[in-house]
Simulated assay, not measured.
Amino acid sequence: MLTLTYEYKLKLTQQQAKQIDHDLEVCRRVWNHALRERKNWIASRKCPVNACSLVSEYIIPADAPYPSFNVQCQRLTEAKQTNPDLASLNTQALQQDLKRLDQAFERRHW
């Protein structure tokens, strides 16, 4: 069987290229913030209370929930109210970034 493929090259205007760069930058920031939030939560619970260094460990309250996909989506909704960069992007695009991060954490092998 012969598979025929086509390749199309986008010819973006300067305005479109600028908008795409902005959107990708905002998505990168959301991903990095969500990743840091999860890593900090894990780091705050990996050592015994009597052995943690108060200087080098990031301490999160014990009753703070794990920053799961649903929790981070709720926080994203709240952040979109105050941050114009987040408000300029489609919610589904940002939630898809959080979903991919959540799937990466589900597949991890610790």
Rank of each mutant, 00 (worst) to 15 (best):
Leu2Tyr: 13
Leu2Val: 08
Leu2Glu: 09
Thr3Asn: 04
Leu4Asn: 06
Leu4Glu: 07
Leu4Trp: 11
Tyr6Asn: 10
Tyr8Gln: 13
Leu10Asn: 02
Lys11Asp: 12
Leu12Val: 15
Leu12Lys: 03
Leu12Pro: 11
Thr13His: 10
Gln14His: 01
Gln14Pro: 10
Asp21Pro: 10
Asp23Gly: 12
Leu24Val: 08
Glu25Asp: 08
Arg28Phe: 09
Arg28Tyr: 07
Val30Met: 07
Val30Ala: 08
Val30Lys: 09
Trp31Asp: 03
Ala34Ser: 07
Leu35Pro: 03
Arg36Trp: 01
Glu37Asp: 13
Lys39Ser: 07
Trp41Gln: 05
Arg45Cys: 07
Arg45Lys: 06
Cys52Tyr: 04
Cys52Thr: 15
Ser53Pro: 06
Ser53Thr: 01
Ser53Cys: 13
Val55Cys: 02
Glu57Cys: 14
Ile59Leu: 11
Ile59Gln: 00
Asp63Pro: 03
Asp63Leu: 08
Ala64Asp: 06
Pro65Val: 15
Pro65Asn: 14
Ser68Lys: 04
Ser68Cys: 15
Asn70Cys: 07
Val71Phe: 01
Cys73Lys: 06
Cys73Phe: 12
Arg75Tyr: 03
Leu76Phe: 02
Thr77Gln: 01
Ala79Val: 05
Gln81Tyr: 05
Thr82Pro: 05
Thr82His: 11
Thr82Leu: 09
Asp85Ile: 09
Leu86Tyr: 15
Ser88Pro: 12
Leu89Trp: 14
Thr91Met: 00
Gln92His: 05
Ala93Val: 04
Gln95Asn: 08
Gln95Phe: 00
Gln96His: 11
Gln96Asn: 04
Asp97Arg: 07
Asp97Val: 08
Asp97Asn: 10
Leu98Pro: 05
Arg100Met: 14
Asp102Leu: 02
Gln103Asp: 05
Gln103Arg: 04
Glu106Tyr: 00
Glu106Thr: 07
Arg107Cys: 02
Arg108Ser: 10
Arg108Met: 03
His109Leu: 12
